[in-house]
Simulated assay, not measured.
Amino acid sequence: MSLVERSHGIAMHRVNAMVLRYWYLLVSSWPRMLELVYWPALQIITWGFLQNYISQNAGFFAQAGGTLIGAVILWDILFRGQLGFSISFLEEMWARNLGNLMMSPLKPIEFLISLMIMSLIRLAIGIIPMVILAMFFKFNLFALGLPLIAFFCNLIFTSWSLGIFVSGLVLRNGLGAESIVWTLMFGLMPLACVYYPVSVLPAWLQYIAWALPPTYVFEGMRALLFDHTFRADLMLTALAINVVLFIVSFAIFLGLLNSARRAGTLISGGE
């Protein structure tokens, strides 16, 4: 038995089994694979042409080093990370298989870890073509250097926290709450200041914006592209908020799971 299994009671063979289950579901359906590539590619092409147009007509944006395309890619990491997590969870809801999983030796933490791993796999399938396409519009994401690691980690942690939270809501309320999987992230988008600085928001909204970890990432990206300065303070603040957000979302998930067990919604899982 490994050190992880002894110290935390997490059986990695069960996590691996769940990841294989989701992987087989993914690769067995070409429409699923196509969808992962299609939407990111469509976004980068659309925003890439817009960036070209703005660069040709506004010197300020020409000096921004592809701020719009960079924002699109980072936003897609956040959005696809959460969606990849939630879609794998919804596969169990759609198949009415969640009750079976929860009655098996599989622990909730193992279930969530498998969803996180699948989130990374699905994200990679969609983002890699997107990054390659961005190079045709003269934007190299990897030119951001080591700060890109901090941007990615903070965004993926936020996406997992939100994925855990919305999965708990669907778990407790059934597929009638499925729409929140698709809408929650877009509701946060204006406050995360993806395409504009926090300063353009009204003063009272700025307090809410600074409570969201992605806001620090997008502000950090703009500081790097405009001022060529890496704001480590922004990344550390985002990480601290992410830690709190992750713990709270996990606690909420466990609470909603226990409530679903008592209410019997694990078996029904319908509308």
Rank of each mutant, 00 (worst) to 15 (best):
I180W: 13
W204M: 10
L120S: 00
A41R: 06
A232W: 12
M33Q: 06
L50K: 01
W47M: 15
A240R: 09
L133N: 02
A41M: 14
A150V: 13
P105G: 10
V200P: 04
C193T: 10
I149V: 14
L184A: 02
Q51L: 12
L34T: 07
L205C: 12
Y22E: 14
L25N: 12
F165S: 07
I117E: 00
F60Y: 07
T158G: 10
L112H: 00
W182M: 08
N16G: 12
A251K: 14
Q56G: 11
L188E: 06
S2L: 04
E219G: 13
T46F: 09
L212C: 00
Q43R: 13
A134Q: 04
G163Y: 13
Q82D: 04
F165V: 11
R261E: 09
I54K: 03
R80D: 09
I127P: 00
A263V: 11
N242W: 15
M12Q: 11
V194A: 07
R172H: 06
F137N: 02
C193Q: 09
F85K: 08
Y22W: 08
N173R: 10
L115E: 05
T215H: 01
D233Y: 04
S161I: 12
L162H: 05
G264W: 01
A150H: 12
S249C: 15
L234N: 08
Y196T: 12
G269F: 09
A203W: 05
L239D: 03
F186V: 08
P105N: 07
M130E: 14
L224E: 01
S199C: 00
N52I: 08
N242S: 12
R32A: 12
S2P: 05
G187N: 00
Q63M: 10
L212P: 01
G255F: 13
I208C: 08
G48R: 10
H228P: 06
R14Q: 15
L191R: 09
L50I: 15
V248R: 04
